[in-house]
Amino acid sequence: MSIRQPFRKLGKLAFNVGMAIFSFACVFPIIWIIYSSLKTKDEFMLNAVKLPAHPEFRNYYKAFVEGKMAHYFISSGLNSVIAVVVVVFLSFCAAYALSRFRFRFRNAIYTFFIAGMLIPVYGLLVPLFLQFKQFGLYDKFYTLIIPYIAIRLPLPIFLLESYIRSVPVELDEAAHMDGASKFYSMTRILFPICRPAIATIVILVFLDTWNEFPFSLVLVTNEAFKTLPVGLTNFYGQYTSDYTTLMAAMVLSILPVLAVYLAFYKYIIQGMTAGAVKG
């Protein structure tokens, strides 16, 4: 028995070292982008990995002011916030109905929503473009928000439907006994319980919409309506790429996503330990 002890410790150590290397490999690209964004173009061309000799923030100025990143920030931000609010509202209502009521075509409707997850975005590009062009929705300030909401809906409905189903019906019944209306128990009792699922949805929807590329590329022409990732392509030239400015722009574009993640992350943890009816 006593011989095994050191071996187990050694095994643990090896495992930890392995994991540390793995995590480093995951985090390094981000660290690399951050310090490379402080280098000059020539410095970067000569050695892509070296730390900057004289860190400077000129690339950030170039990206934000000369590259007109502000446009894309506003557009991506507005689209993301609206998409998050509308998706959370719609998916919560839909999931509540789907999980708490039995009605005809309930399964058909559920399947219909879930089927939306199976269609690849690139398959939708041409049909959607034609549709928007025909209906006169092409290149308007509200153009992008429509497909963004539609395409993000299935996953939240799927998540919330199963989450609400895991919440005991007794809770609703108790509320009903105490005289709460359906609306009250839905918004004041169920909604707070669903916080972890909703936090997940907020993070996912925000991230996906913030980073959305194909629709923004194809459905709008006006620079002001394009999302950030399409704006980032401006730093690529036909034969050359301005990598250092691009990296500064990337760092800037990571920040809001990071902020949203940090703001909602704690709810996921909280939700795991919360609960009313246990056992």
């Binding site: 590009l125 041409v126 473009f129 034609l130 062009k133 590329f213 194909p214 590329l217 194809v218 399409v230 392509t233 401006n234 730093f235 690529y236 030239g237 036909q238």
Partner: peptide
């Protein structure tokens, strides 16, 4: 700016 993105858009426009 990006070639791949440019041609993705161009092909979509051409298809319609």
């Amino acid at each position: 700016g990006d070639q791949n993105a440019y041609y993705t858009k161009l092909k979509t426009l051409a298809a319609s």
